[in-house]
Design a binder for these strands. Structure first.
Lengths: 158, 158
DNA sequence: TCGATTTAGATGCCACGGCATATAGTGTAC
DNA sequence: GTACACTATATGCCGTGGCATCTAAATCGA
């Protein structure tokens, strides 16, 4: 097999390919449903959910959480603010930054969207994660995520 | 915990978040190294590798493999062709499409880039996938990927 | 065989992210 | 308190992908 005949003895390229393909397709499928039912996309849903669960986050906090550049994050917050889902409040401790918070409408939106996401994931993934291999998978991905985050792997410059 | 207090009893949202975060950071990190050492990005590496391993693919085959729109794939092939890594040959069986093939330079590039990717993944992921939970994880992701592909989940329109 | 439908892919417009840069506010040393 | 380095983020330019649309070629049906 391929992993024996090239320089990838542990088959990490195959793992990486599967990881990327699963992510792409799930992300695209969630985009479709969220756009159709709530007029947002997955990245916006995740930002709104983070703000709901971590009120008072700053732009840089969102950027670090999602491994997206600060500039792009600032523009994303602009859009959420224009839609009336997020507000920038002055940060009393540092006038360079703002504290982000959901509006009431933003809170309603993220709660409704979360139900959509839960349903969609259940339908898309089904019982693939049931049982012991599924539990191991969750655990391994959580571990890998913390590892990458601790080492600040893959953070864009800007 | 969160998975008990909302409508996500099986915790799929947490799994999905971990999946997306791992993918983003690994993808970004690979981008950095591939750009620095070979002047390409991960999506280009994956397209070149697919063409090396599946010569005679068409634009639509690449699009289906990576769950990217056909228009975007066509433009991506344009770029690879401009760089001299890929050629479009007329398809004798269907004059609407072309058969894609790597040039010699494209072959050299993808082989070199593959070694970079192997090294980078080994360094980034390390021994996280060693052992039985790691093996279960590979298996589960491979299964999930086939499931999504069979059902054509997350294919962009264009 | 000829018109209608479908398919492959090329192209234009737009949204979004990366990266570089600009700006304003903060901390520090003296 | 003033100069200097640093930090948070806003903004501009560019590359890339999505989606709609267009064209040519293949396929289908009578």
């Amino acid at each position: 097999m391929a992993s024996k005949s090239n320089g990838d003895p542990t088959g990490l390229q195959g793992f990486f390919a599967d990881l990327v393909r699963c992510e792409t397709r799930l992300y695209n499928a969630l985009n479709d449903r969220l756009r159709e039912r709530h007029g947002i996309v997955t990245s916006q849903f995740e930002a709104l959910r983070h703000l709901r669960d971590h009120p008072g986050s700053r732009v840089a906090d969102l950027a670090a959480e999602f491994a997206v550049g600060i500039g792009a994050t600032s523009k994303g917050v602009d859009r959420l603010e224009k839609h009336g889902w997020v507000v920038r409040r002055p940060n009393p401790a540092d006038r360079r930054s703002s504290l982000l918070a959901l509006t009431d409408e933003g809170t309603r939106l993220v709660d409704a969207a979360e139900a959509t996401v839960t349903d969609a994931l259940a339908e898309l993934i089904g019982d693939t994660l049931d049982g012991s291999p599924g539990e191991a998978t969750r655990q391994v991905l959580a571990t890998l995520r913390s590892l990458l985050e601790r080492r600040q792997i893959g953070m864009p410059t800007g």
